[in-house]
Amino acid sequence: MLKVSIWRGVDEGEFIDYEVPMRANQTVLDIVTEVQRNQEPDLAYRFACRVGVCGSCAMTVNGRPRWTCRSHVNDVIDGDRLVLEPLRSHPRIRDLVVDLAPFFETWKGSGAVFKPSATRDDKPVKITADDPARKNADAGIECINCAVCYSACDVVSWDKNYLGPAALNRAWTLVNDAKHGERKETLNKALGDGGCGSCHSMGNCTRNCPVGLSPSAGIAGLKKFALRGLPKVEKP
């Protein structure tokens, strides 16, 4: 049997221990579902796709933030024990569910909202796959918004002004996007209060990103652009 401690409550609460049968090919999300279906029907947790696309099932597993649907129990277990908590640095709603609204608010602060540079009547911009700016954008574009990097970041945990790695990674993809109409504004916001200058380059975001992105590299790139200015991209 697998021993699982799950946080029950909101800010005030306690860890409750459960025993779950050990099976081959179990993910952490499978364990939570097993507990919810067979032992604790009112256990609150969040998931949707179960295949690592939607980014909604992230939790703290044995002290580290992870996407639980793609985290195999054998890879993350400590002895015969799993400790599951909500993601840190987010307001808690109940049990394993956190409020992601403040996390998505940070995206606005970093200027990470796409503004078209052309209309449907204009010809599309020609962008080649080997364009350096496109390569930069491609390197960060697969973010699934799971908030694991945000939760892993120590600066986020103590500096409430800091926008966090996900929002800055998004800003990095946009300042490299020829189709984005406000590249300069996005760069200024990403370099503004609580932006790249607050990053301590600890790399927890990159270490924990479940899809293997490097927000640290994007933040370093934004800092370079602060000194050198934006790279040229194809005009629409």
Binding site: N188, L191, G195, C196, G197, K223, A226, L227
Partner: peptide, 14 residues
């Protein structure tokens, strides 16, 4: 250019 960006640049060049 924002003040924060200006300070960032000044600090890096100094």
């Amino acid at each position: 250019m924002t003040v924060v960006r200006g300070l960032f640049i000044a600090q890096r060049y100094s």
